[in-house]
């Protein structure tokens, strides 16, 4: 069975007909070639597939593409400005060495932006608790925590 959907992805309108069982993450990766959103597990635990859906961070492996019908989706590819200027959170991850292999990074950055929207001046404890749904195997989280605090401060400016 196929379904029709229309949504906005990174500011651009998208219409498509997809198999009803298509996950949002597969739609983004395979139909729209937005391969910055990654798949790291099959139980909604790792957070590598995190995207923004109507301003909320969601795990794109836990949603059907059909559930995003009518929504505004932002992926890692949609964060930087048109001239290439990085979003303050992207810049903070680079400045604070908040990434190593880069695989969890898109999900981390999207989760971090969502976190700051809800906690504009997060302390370390809040950041660590809020990132509980995003696994990183490389960094030991320390520089990610530092990056999120740094990014939050930059976003407040």
């Amino acid at each position: 069975m196929s379904v029709q959907l229309s949504l906005t992805v990174n500011g651009k309108p998208v219409s498509a007909t997809v198999d009803a069982r298509t996950l949002l993450v597969d739609f983004l990766r395979n139909e729209l070639a937005l391969t910055g959103t990654h798949v790291g597990c099959d139980t909604g635990q790792c957070g590598a597939c995190t995207v923004s859906l109507d301003g909320r961070a969601v795990k794109a492996c836990n949603l059907l593409a059909a559930q995003a019908n009518g929504a505004k989706v932002v992926t890692i590819e949609g964060l930087a400005a048109a001239d290439g200027t990085l979003h303050p959170m992207q810049a903070a991850f680079k400045e604070c060495h908040g990434l190593q292999c880069g695989f969890c990074t898109p999900g981390m950055v999207l989760s971090a932006i969502d976190l700051v929207a809800r906690h504009p001046q997060p302390d370390e404890k809040t950041i660590r608790a809020e990132l509980e749904g995003n696994l990183c195997r490389c960094t030991g989280y320390q520089n990610i925590v530092k990056a999120v605090a740094h990014g939050a401060a930059a976003m407040a400016k």
């Binding site: 910055g36 590819e77 990085l86 680079k94 060495h97 990434l99 990074t105 898109p106």
Partner: peptide
Amino acid sequence: QAVRRREDLRFLTGAGQYTDD
């Protein structure tokens, strides 16, 4: 020197190319 990593830009913008990409 703590030179910032040049590989970060592609990873932070979704332009990395992993095997599944």
